[in-house]
Design a protein around this nucleic acid. Structure first.
Lengths: 294, 294
DNA sequence: TCTACAACCTCCCCTAACAGGAGAGTCAAG
DNA sequence: CTTGACTCTCCTGTTAGGGGAGGTTGTAGA
């Protein structure tokens, strides 16, 4: 008969842990003094505690260990549990790898030292929505493109004010294609810059003076998208390049983390022209739909 | 102003989590209605919650994130935290790799199907001890070797009974050298099989009739040893081969898990000849000192 | 205007595997 | 007989929230 301290020394399991296992029924003392409640173990129990430790080292939970100990399970069951655990560990390793790539991406950005932008990428789902779509005609000069877009938005605003449009408050600029700087590139393509205005279920197609017929469409949900919030520094100076830079970084981030970016970028205005005319107050989220590597 | 549900939908953080972060002070609502206690967030808070999520994805704790958010920390501090985290993740990955190798070792043993022995290897420290040492002279025949050892042990027992030896109850058979079956091999070396009897601090050298002078020595602690408990099936049939097989498996196990086994094996009798004459009741732990790969 | 029902609130308990500590009883040696 | 080492039973704390009870508030339809 060994007192708990002795058993603890032999097995190199702490007394606290032995108490805990007693409570769980994993290994109960061979004898308990009914007067003092002292626990007494025997050397015959050493194989059992060894077994518990060996299984714990493999990462099995105490609950699973309890099952394995109490019913002598068949070779097949045992194999099944181990295969399961194997898969779990593989999953953990992938997760660790993901985390590592994120940490190292950040470190590289810091090392690059270029007044590094805070790139807080979040993977999220994009909800499906009903929307009115308008394609901004291409312009080779930045100012013209911006002015044109402003005109479109104020036309929409008027329609909203007149009650012609029941919107949901969601306004998204979508840039189709790989192009990063749609307003400044000379060989810009048609139908590249699309404005989506989220609308309620009751909304139907409308015709607006100056920009024409807008029909209602459905945008399907996107399962996985890499997103970042643009900061003030990206927006001030009416610097559209800030938007483009984020998109580039987002793309790089996605690739570095094993995602396959789609061929478009969305800018969701949480607070944009519909809410304020001061660009410094804009809150804009860049969204890059991606495919997962699976 | 966004109610918590709306903010939750935009950020894709559950309401529960937002409550939790509020409590921790990670991100507090811009406004709380003093009457209803409703939390109101603003779109300006989206970058902050994004940042929190991005840092959390890297595996940082909420406490660390809190620190990073509240005091604008320098590039160097940031780099330091990330390097620390990087090291942590590497550690986790090594641990996962260790677990994986254990699980796969077991799976291989099961697949091998050879009435597979339960090999519950536990890594532990071996304590330093004072001991009396006796080298068993080599014998080419199994029975002779065993009989000789029995004689030695009973001589020790007599001495103990006479009070000549103050022992600690610890009896260890050490087999020096790679040899697995010391009793049966023809080219057995001298001074290969050593018996250690742990003794108390007061014990000094003794001279025993029949086996001669035994001096007291110190055995240093072993930092890392792979150990298994021998089972009844290993011990019955007075089958010394069971001992040897465990040693072989122990060695393989150690190598498969990145340890470098030393050139000796110890058998610690938790219950051996000193306690019982019935070999079926023996409780014996095989110990293989190893070096870690670090 | 009444009534659902959705959204929101504040507790409170639960997780896994113990560690730490308080306060009290027990054991062995000097 | 006393000290110091052991042991006991509670109780709390750890991480990052999830689940649910029980109560209030907000909104939309009849």
């Amino acid at each position: 008969m060994l007192k708990i301290g002795e058993f603890s020394r032999l097995s190199q399991v702490t007394i606290k842990t032995l108490h805990h296992y007693d409570e769980l029924g994993l290994i109960k003392p061979a004898h308990i003094d009914p007067v003092t409640n002292y626990r007494f173990y025997t050397v015959e129990q050493l194989p059992r505690i060894h077994r518990i430790m060996a299984l714990k080292e493999m990462g099995l939970s105490l609950e699973q260990i309890g099952i394995m100990l109490e019913k002598e399970l068949s070779t097949d069951e045992m194999r099944g549990m181990l295969h399961l655990k194997q898969a779990e560990i593989h999953q953990e390793m992938r997760e660790a790898q993901r985390q590592l790539s994120m940490v190292e991406f950040r470190l590289r950005m810091i090392e690059a030292e270029i007044n590094f932008p805070e790139l807080d990428v979040v993977i999220k789902k994009l909800e499906a929505m009903r929307y009115l779509s308008f394609f901004v005609a291409p312009h080779t000069r930045l100012e013209k493109g911006l002015a044109y877009r402003s005109m479109v938005v104020s036309t929409l605003q008027n329609a909203i004010a007149e009650g012609v449009i029941q919107h949901t408050g969601v306004l998204i600029d979508v840039f189709h294609g790989e192009m990063i700087l749609p307003f400044t590139s000379p060989d810009i393509k048609e139908r590249q810059h699309e404005i989506l205005l989220g609308v309620k279920d009751t909304q139907e197609a409308v015709k607006l003076k100056g920009i024409g017929q807008l029909t209602v469409k459905e945008e399907p949900a996107v399962e996985t998208a890499a997103t970042v919030m643009l900061e003030k520094s990206d927006l001030k100076d009416i610097n559209i390049a800030g938007y483009a830079e984020k998109a580039t970084l987002l793309r790089r981030w996605a690739i570095a983390h094993g995602y396959k970016p789609h061929d478009l970028v969305r800018y969701l205005s949480h607070r944009g022209l519909l809410q304020t005319s001061n660009p410094e107050e804009f809150i804009i989220e860049a969204q890059l739909p991606v495919d997962t590597g699976d």
